[in-house]
Design a protein around this nucleic acid. Structure first.
Lengths: 206, 206
DNA sequence: AACGTAACCCTAACGGTTAGTGTTTTGCAA
DNA sequence: TTGCAAAACACTAACCGTTAGGGTTACGTT
């Protein structure tokens, strides 16, 4: 899966990584705003246009693992055990993602993000995409019979839990507390008032 | 409250309004991206720097009523009847705000927002601020005894309800459905299990 | 070996945003 | 009324992220 399929793609990946590493290093050394794209390109020894062929924007240089994050989240739903209820699986994955984000080495990066309005804004818009992807995964799961609205709301709530926990004093406790709320919200709609599909529901029969 | 307190402030407000009106008109006529700040300034007969002295960014020209929105939200919490429960009051206000946003004349504006990534991103970052203001209002209410985490989560959930409903096919039904979930989530924590700080300590939330 | 193309480079520009500086208008008091 | 400080505004020039245009190199394939 992560094997070298060819020199060209390996070189491309190497260039991308070099740019990302260089950018993060410069950002942490001198701050996000003071470092320009032209600085990053020069230090990584590539052209400015090359930077933008690998990353959609300056902010994207900081959130390099964006897609990975989204995949973790959706896979936690689609790849869970056949009869495992949704919320605990989601809870576990979000807890893991929060731990990863609040780990030892991540502190300076978080501080940098919180210190830059542009980065905070970008992170918010990423959250929206993640919530949409998660909502799609929920809506596509045949084991769940909730309305599209319930899926979208739950997806957003889960992302909220992640965002709140990343900034909280006690990330672990925050995730747990918010997911207790999400559990209640999700359970609320289990037996009716769903004006659409009346299909069976495996929830709680694990 | 909205009376003329002086000529200077009236003129300033007039300039601001003229800029906002001109901008919105041009955006709707020719589209958001094709119209530049220099176009807006020229058409409103002011200097570019004047535009930016009234509005923090090009996107802010579209969301002129930002602060009003936030005040409506927080006031729905702080100014509700002495013994009225929180969630119904919040529910009612969000429903009203959604109606306002999905009203007849607002359709072209919404279409414009959805059509521009920059505007969507900006709207998301506004949501973050609104959620923080609402969370602060919840945490400051002596009638509620929930943890800071519960307040922050509930605030985000309410904003989620608004955002989802604005884009939904049936805005009214969406608000009601999501608030049924929020009610359950809020009730869940009513009688204890608050392992951390009781009420105070909202530092860092302007 | 030869070809198509992906990755890369360079230059120049566009558009949002800001700094610096100067001018007019307004509110307030002497 | 007059004088003055501050606010509001104007103008120029620039900064910086981002993209278009047009070329060059190096890889994969045949």
């Amino acid at each position: 899966m992560t094997e070298p399929p060819g020199r060209r793609e390996r070189k491309k990946a190497a260039t991308r990584q070099k740019i990302a590493d260089t950018a993060l290093r410069l950002f942490l050394e001198r701050g996000y705003d003071p470092v320009g794209i032209r600085d990053v390109a020069a230090e990584a020894d590539v052209a400015v246009t090359t930077v933008f062929s690998h990353f959609a924007s300056k902010e994207a240089l900081v959130f390099e693992r964006d897609q990975e994050f989204e995949q973790c989240l959706t896979r936690a739903v689609t790849d869970r055990q056949p009869h495992e209820p949704l919320i605990p699986a989601l809870h576990r994955e979000v807890r893991a993602l929060v731990r990863h984000c609040t780990a030892e080495g991540s502190a300076p990066v978080r501080r940098m993000i919180e210190g830059s309005p542009a980065l905070r804004e970008y992170e918010e818009s990423m959250s929206l995409r993640h919530a949409q992807a998660l909502a799609a995964a929920l809506a596509a799961d045949p084991r769940l019979s909730r309305s599209a609205t319930a899926c979208r709301a739950t997806a957003r709530f889960a992302i909220d839990a992640y965002a709140l926990a990343c900034r909280a004093d006690d990330p672990g406790a925050t995730v747990d507390e918010v997911f207790r709320m999400i559990e209640a919200a999700w359970a609320k709609l289990v037996s009716g008032t769903v004006s659409t599909k009346p299909i069976a529901d495996m929830e709680g029969f694990a």
